[in-house]
Nucleic acid binder design. Structure first.
Length: 173
DNA sequence: TTAAGGATCTCCT
DNA sequence: GGAGATCCTTAAA
């Protein structure tokens, strides 16, 4: 079973300077080690005890830069809806938008810690494809990142969250 | 608005 | 090594 979709929402995190980043101040821990890898490596981690978040490193080795993938517009022909939420499918919005948030996105793609440090340029189970879609700049919205109020007024306000305007799969318009 | 839930980090001993 | 706070969310009410 292949799960696929178009990335419609991302956030940028730039290592040492960015107080919202796990690598703020040059912090290097076992948890965020993947953030320090060369671009193309998966940095996945657990938040709130139950949800994973998918990041992909973008910097050079030793530069903790990464992009958080926040939302995906599913490729409808490639997934089986019944498989998503066996418990209460008819009630859940997950049916219509199974990947409109970082936690749901990982559930949709069946990602977990086993993907930690995966190289998306080499991996056979997780990779990116360029379908030649070029989103017009006018349709790209930049805004403040989500859930990082703890980072202080400055870093919480930086417009480093990018999403596609009006796309229903975006977690927040 | 709130609880769920567990790993991780930060101090402290 | 151990306790306590915190956390880039979600779904239900």
């Amino acid at each position: 079973m292949v799960r696929a979709g178009e990335i419609v929402e991302t956030e940028a995190y730039i290592g040492p300077e960015d107080r919202a980043s796990h690598a703020y101040g040059g912090k290097h821990t076992p948890r965020n080690a993947a953030e320090w890898m060369v671009g193309g490596h998966v940095y996945i981690y657990l938040v709130y005890g139950m949800y994973f978040q998918l990041n992909i490193s973008t910097g050079k080795e030793g530069n903790p830069e990464c992009v958080l993938i926040r939302a995906l517009e599913p490729a409808h022909d490639k997934f089986d809806k019944a498989e998503l939420l066996p418990a209460a499918p008819h009630k859940s919005s997950a049916l219509n938008q199974p990947a409109n948030g970082p936690g749901k996105l990982c559930r949709y793609l069946k990602l977990d810690k086993s993907f930690y440090g995966e190289d998306v340029t080499e991996s056979k189970r997780l990779w990116l494809e360029d379908h030649g879609v070029r989103v017009p700049h006018a349709k790209i919205v930049a805004g403040p990142r989500v859930g990082i109020d703890y980072a202080g007024v400055h870093w919480a306000a930086v417009p480093w969250r990018f999403s596609i305007k009006g796309n229903p799969a975006v977690s927040r318009q």
